[in-house]
């Protein structure tokens, strides 16, 4: 609401990197009169307007964003040492400036993980997640010729748990936060969702093996159950799905 609305003057310490193989470094900028009502990315917009206005040699800061309502999974900043910034269960685009104080210095970094090379500034390449999905993150049905939607009853708790896993937005906060650069939470969300549903059971073994193999091939790290991913996941995807992935993977390997 209007009351309690304040203006902030801030120092931003932003990672600037011209390209994938370029040498990056932090640069400091100041922004003034930022409303506490503004979202974090709107503050970044203001910074960029400023950089365009002043013809900054590095140009505006490149960062990924799209829907700005916390669902597309495109935004991806590491703010003051936390994926998606200092608030829980939200994405960067849902972070508001009221979480900061006047005079704060805010460190803004890109996802840093071997699996996510930097494209420019704060923008990273997360196509590895797509590749993992292409390896097996689906039920092999083609369009048409499927049974009636109500032909297979699914217990509500299973459907609900599958939905919990399916809430993943593929933003990459899990691997970005993980000290091992592991993508297990992302992979497990899909494996677990489909393993819970009868539709996905037919190829559950194949899927678990294929997705894990792809994940390993792409150089993601090994899960050591720190649980940091779950805590930083904007959609609170639980590490219990990792346990299910482990189980599915073991089952798949025992079978053959």
């Amino acid at each position: 609401m209007a009351e309690g609305h304040k203006s902030l003057n801030l120092t931003l310490k932003v990672w600037r990197q011209a390209g994938r193989n370029a040498q990056g470094q932090f640069k400091e900028y100041t922004v003034k009169d930022i409303s506490t009502e503004a979202s974090f990315l709107e503050m970044m917009d203001i910074l960029n307007e400023q950089l365009i206005e002043t013809a900054d040699p590095d140009g505006p800061v490149a960062f990924d964003h799209d829907c700005r309502e916390g669902i597309c999974g495109m935004c991806s900043l590491f703010i003051n040492g936390r994926a998606h910034g200092p608030d829980d269960d939200i994405t960067t685009c849902q972070l508001h400036m009221r979480k900061f104080n006047d005079g704060d210095k805010i460190t803004i970094e890109p996802w840093r993980s071997g699996g996510f090379p930097i494209i420019k500034d704060l923008m990273v390449d997360r196509s590895a997640y797509d590749k993992i999905m292409q390896a097996g993150g689906f039920v092999s049905v083609s369009t048409g010729g499927v049974p009636d939607a109500n032909a297979i009853p699914i217990p509500k708790p299973d459907a609900d748990e599958a939905m919990d896993a399916a809430a993943c937005i593929g933003c990459g906060a899990c691997a970005a936060t993980c000290k091992n650069g592991s993508a297990m939470l992302f992979v497990s969300a899909k494996v677990s969702q489909l393993a819970l549903l009868p539709q996905g059971k037919a190829e559950a073994a194949k899927r678990a093996k294929a997705m894990v193999a792809k994940m390993d091939e792409l150089g993601f790290g090994n899960c050591t159950n720190t649980g940091a991913c779950e805590l930083e996941c904007p959609k609170s995807v639980s590490i219990s799905h990792i346990a299910r992935l482990n189980r599915e993977f073991l089952k798949a390997n025992v079978k053959d």
């Binding site: 049905v141 048409g144 049974p147 939607a149 217990p155 509500k156 459907a159 549903l197």
Partner: peptide
């Protein structure tokens, strides 16, 4: 109607009743 069938077959976790139906 075909859309719903198709999506369920793909594993879309639609909301369900306790009886297991949509």
């Amino acid at each position: 109607n075909l859309i719903i069938d198709q999506c369920v077959a793909q594993g879309v976790p639609f909301a369900r009743e306790y009886g297991g139906l949509l």
